[in-house]
């Protein structure tokens, strides 16, 4: 299935929750969706017979200045098609529904995005830092991040 066909199918079910399709060859086409309906959209992307996206290739967090973004790369092993889903949330309240119950792969990926970008995945069963120490403050891959002076009595820079 081509990206525009996937877009039309999703549009027919979720109407205005699906914001737009951006086709930008040769990079992957992506569909922007409303973050509040993300869980239901991902659920039908995995389970509907014409989608069958059984493989979450990657989950990435982004800092876009005012907004934070989450990018999902999906692939269907059975139907051999792929799509990119993006969702944007404001930086003050970065709440995105967790897809960890849909694809188990998302568990650690979401923890990484939480650790470095600070996206709050709601419904994740164990949303704690994965790479940095548990008592680290701030989210280092945000553009406005400034590193602390000291950590546990050790000079940082």
């Amino acid at each position: 299935m081509l990206p525009n066909e996937i877009f039309e199918k999703l549009r027919s079910v979720y109407s205005d929750q699906i914001i737009e399709l951006i086709e930008n060859h040769p990079s992957d086409s992506f569909i922007t969706v409303n973050a509040s309906a993300l869980f239901e959209i991902c659920h039908s992307l995995r389970d509907e017979a014409f989608f069958m996206f059984d493989y979450l290739m990657s989950l990435t967090g982004m800092d876009l200045g005012e907004n934070l973004g989450v990018v999902y790369h999906l692939y269907s092993m059975q139907l051999k098609h792929k799509i990119v889903i993006k969702a944007f949330v404001p930086k003050e309240q970065p709440k995105v529904p967790s897809v960890e119950r849909i694809w188990r792969t998302a568990d650690w990926h979401e923890r990484e995005a939480y650790d470095l970008i600070g996206v709050n995945f709601e419904g994740h069963h164990n949303l704690i830092r994965i790479l940095l120490p548990y008592d680290w403050e701030g989210y280092p891959l945000r553009k406005d991040y400034t590193a602390p002076e000291m950590y546990h009595g050790m000079k940082v820079s």
Binding site: L132, P140, P148, M154, K155, S157
Partner: peptide, 11 residues
């Protein structure tokens, strides 16, 4: 490197 100790001789 915000996460790297600048030399193990610091500790």
């Amino acid at each position: 490197g915000y996460h790297v100790l600048k030399g193990v001789d610091k500790i």
